[in-house]
């Protein structure tokens, strides 16, 4: 991905938002996230959900994608033809962002991170209940949850709070700034404490969160007998979980699972589906089976697996 004059950005994840553009159209939340991550203060043009603006002959509007704070689908209209670019999205409820909106269109460009029938994300609360149950039976340990720094971490905390978990949650340094940003946008995350400010014994029987890369690293040695958990859609596959030495897999994703992807295509009912970012072949094949015109759109800069 190269820097351009005008960029339309769906959300703040690194594979969708890069620095260096001259003008960036994005939601205020996404612009704040990009500022925090890149500290470039690009010429940001804030766009509110639903607001229509024009670039030359194209009229453009942003609509909630339900992926992370500020995430948007972008609707482009030109000569009576409309295209919707989903960016990344999900259909499940998420207390940290506005829910996905079905936007009718001619061409629907969908993500495909979990576009295989093996991917099914169980109810969020059932997955997080596993964490609370584990804490109950392991008073001497902590549960260390690996979660992506933007979106996943805050969603996990927020969902836990909604389930009535009100004890402090301990954070790896890499998660702190983004949590503060979420709180500035009105997402209440309850009491958060930096691991570096805590004693080992303080964390016994508590939840500690870190980015996935820190799960098996030296950093975790300062924790009281951690039980390794990871919140990701990839945890659906046992062998993946085992490869990462995960003891407590939490199947929880900010992406649509197979059912959400296929249901959304049916609901949006576009003339044509373009598939990108993931397992294009399977979703294109599925469309073919249902006589929906579809093709793979190969883009550069695919996400890493931590972003699940």
């Amino acid at each position: 991905m190269r820097a351009v004059e005008t960029a339309l950005v769906t959300h703040g994840h690194a594979d969708h938002a890069r620095s260096g553009h001259q003008r960036v159209y994005a939601t205020p939340e996404t612009l704040a996230i990009m500022d925090l991550r890149y500290a470039t203060h690009d010429a940001g043009c804030p766009v509110a959900y639903g607001e229509v603006f024009h670039l030359g002959p194209v009229s453009i509007s942003y609509h909630p994608a339900g992926h992370v704070l500020g995430s948007a689908q972008i609707r482009l209209e030109y000569n009576d033809e409309t295209v919707v670019v989903t960016g990344d999205y999900k259909r499940r409820s998420d207390p940290t962002c506005a829910p996905f909106e079905v936007v009718p269109c001619d061409i629907f460009i969908t993500e495909a991170t979990f576009a295989l029938p093996v991917f099914y994300h169980p109810p969020t609360q059932d997955e997080l209940q596993k964490v609370l149950d584990t804490l109950k039976t392991n008073a001497e340990s902590c549960v260390l949850i690996g979660a992506y720094a933007l979106g996943k971490a805050q969603r996990v905390i927020s969902e836990l709070r909604a389930m009535g978990y009100d004890k402090p949650i301990f954070l790896h340094g890499a998660l702190a700034k983004m949590c503060t940003l979420y709180e500035q946008f009105g997402v209440d995350l309850g009491e958060l404490i930096a691991v570096s400010d805590a004693q080992k014994t303080d964390m016994q029987g508590h939840i500690v969160m870190c980015p996935p890369s820190a799960l098996n690293d030296r950093w975790s040695r300062r924790l009281p007998d951690p039980i390794t958990a990871m919140a990701s859609g990839w945890m659906r596959v046992r062998q993946r979980a085992r490869q990462r030495n995960v003891e407590l897999p939490i199947i929880l994703s900010d992406h649509a699972d197979w059912t959400e992807l296929t249901d959304t295509i049916c609901e949006v009912n576009p003339r044509e589906v373009w598939v990108t970012h993931g397992r294009e072949e399977a979703l294109v094949h599925w469309c073919g089976l249902r006589q929906i015109s579809a093709k793979a759109l190969r883009l550069v800069g695919r996400e890493t697996e931590d972003d699940g």
């Binding site: 295989l116 029938p117 093996v118 659906r236 596959v237 062998q239 399977a282 094949h285």
Partner: peptide
Amino acid sequence: RLDPLLFKLSRDFVGDTAETVALI
């Protein structure tokens, strides 16, 4: 029972027939 191509793609991703079939 399943669409053979979707099964094959899933199997390639998961890397284990038993787990793939269990999941899909």
